[in-house]
């Protein structure tokens, strides 16, 4: 068990070093000055004209990125089908 704990500590330290090195190079909080924002600007300025929706997030989710929502619905359908399939034998 001591070997398992030491292996866990070594793995934790390695992952922590990688995460800290990654976090040192991110942008400052709330700073968008040096990020490419042309897609965001187009969506923010044209959502109300193109889709007529006031909520831009729903317009993006259901209109601009409809395929993403289709995949999400497929994932939920598969999850429900799997749960009902697994527990059907117990329900009889």
């Amino acid at each position: 068990m001591a070997m398992r704990n030491s292996a866990a500590i070594i793995f934790f330290v390695i992952v922590a070093i990688f995460i800290i090195l990654g976090l040192l190079s991110i942008h400052p909080f709330g700073d968008t000055s040096d990020i490419n924002t042309s897609m965001d600007d187009h969506i923010i300025q044209n959502t109300q004209k193109e889709t007529g929706a006031d909520n831009g997030v729903t317009a993006v989710v259901f209109d601009y990125r409809g395929f993403d929502t289709l995949g999400e619905a497929t994932v939920l359908f598969t999850a429900v089908a799997g749960v009902i399939l697994v527990f059907r034998r117990l329900n009889k």
Partner: peptide, 17 residues
């Protein structure tokens, strides 16, 4: 649902959404 949004109270907007 064929109108363009005119404030937060108009529910008859946004087409298919």
């Amino acid at each position: 649902f064929n109108q363009i949004g005119q404030g937060l109270s108009n529910i008859n907007t946004a087409g298919l959404l």
